[in-house]
């Protein structure tokens, strides 16, 4: 990224190749909308180009990337507070409306329910779980991205997990 900052814009292609899936995964777990996530990946990379001079190089590149992605998400939620629509919910309902009650179906249904439970979490809880479980980042890295202490991150992950569990248990009943 420092080379991009110095004017070698072709290096941004390399960064894209390395991180686009990871970033897309994070944004997908935050929004559960494929196209929107792709648009946001685009936005994040555009902002990284445009504001490349703000990258100091003191922290890790991906921390900077995540902080830009979080800002893009915040902008999105601020603009679209009213019209939240999740593809995941629709998919789950379609599956739930199916007729064949076999083992695979039950597994799918369980997964869809967990999916829905995730959606019911608050944005910050979903975010911390997206980073820890789906991005598989270490608590120390999450702490840097979110600007918290490592201990706080651990407690918050635990609370988010407890919340998810209680939502999930309620849904099963």
């Amino acid at each position: 990224m420092l080379k991009v900052k110095a004017g070698d814009l072709d290096r941004m292609g390399m960064l894209f190749e390395r991180y686009n899936r990871q970033l897309y995964g994070f944004l997908f777990h935050m929004t559960y909308q494929r196209e929107l996530s792709e648009d946001m990946v685009q936005q994040v990379f555009y902002k990284m180009l445009k504001y490349r001079h703000t990258f100091t190089g003191t922290g890790e590149y991906i921390h900077w990337m995540y902080s830009i992605a979080r800002n893009v998400l915040k902008d999105h939620w601020r603009k679209n507070k009213q019209q939240v629509q999740h593809e995941g919910v629709e998919a789950a309902e379609t599956i739930a409306g199916g007729l064949v009650p076999d083992e695979a179906f039950e597994k799918k249904q369980a997964k869809a329910e967990l999916h829905r439970a995730m959606e019911k979490l608050s944005e910050s809880q979903r975010e911390i779980l997206a980073l820890s479980r789906f991005q598989e980042l270490k608590c120390q890295e999450i702490a840097e991205i979110l600007g918290m202490t490592e201990g706080t991150v651990k407690v918050r992950i635990h609370r988010a997990m407890q919340e998810l569990k209680s939502i999930y248990v309620k849904m099963e009943r």
Partner: peptide
């Protein structure tokens, strides 16, 4: 157990379109 179940939630792959758009933008 829940953590394990979460791992089964698939993260979809971005479409090829995303990469095309990115390079156009770049």
């Amino acid at each position: 157990q829940l953590w394990g179940h979460m791992g089964q939630i698939e993260t979809p792959e971005p479409s090829a379109n995303m990469s095309v758009k990115f390079y156009a933008m770049l």
